[in-house]
Amino acid sequence: MLELFSYGDTGWGDEILMGLATTMKLAVATLPVGMIIGFLIAFAAMSGIRAVRYVGVGYTTIMRGLPEILTLFVVYNGAGLLLNSLIKWWNPEAEGTDFSPFLAGVIALAMVFGAFAAEVIRGAYNSLDKGQIEAAAAVGMTPQQTFWRIKLPQLWRFALPGIGNLWINMLKDTALVSVIALDDLMRMTKVAVGVTKQPFTFYLVACLIYWVLCVLSEMILSRMERHANRGVRRA
């Protein structure tokens, strides 16, 4: 049993670890992109310009209503088709190429993450204390200074629990990329199952690894929350 998961030619330990590495890379690459999308969409949804506001609100409404796997296929196949027609238009002789599944994964997951993050950021922005922002104006800070020095650090505190949840959801959603042939944890598990014919054992191990990742994330997040909330509540 143990040798099934050993490192090297006879066991699947190294393959599964490589899959785990891909999963982590994907999640870590998605986070900043998703946050940027989240901020852009949140500010669009709060914009004073009606058309911009509609784009922001429309984006979150649509993206949150679609299955993640559909978004992934739309990005993967759609971007693939677009890329190929661009290549054909540039050079009709060129061979068709496949859109990178990793890139498709990052884009799709970030699009989903961004839509939910936008709602979290918007909620956090609305819970900022107006008085503290006025106090910043009263000491003579410019709006830019007020944003970077007062609003953003506090936004972080309000948004952290929500963003933490989204991180965990996104970590789990990375499993979807196995469907578009990216060698993540899920897909490496599938490969191992194909050879060993022990589906339950291997999928259980995959589940346990995801579980550990999520529980670890939760522990780190609750520490971060405690740090972010230091001094806010009365002792």
Partner: peptide, 23 residues
């Protein structure tokens, strides 16, 4: 609850659908 919330549904689906084959 922690297990279900901490694992991808896709993995749970494979565990039940393919995993049952082992038994």
């Amino acid at each position: 609850v922690s297990f279900v919330r901490g694992t991808p549904i896709l993995a749970q689906l494979f565990l039940v659908f393919y995993g049952s084959g082992q038994f």
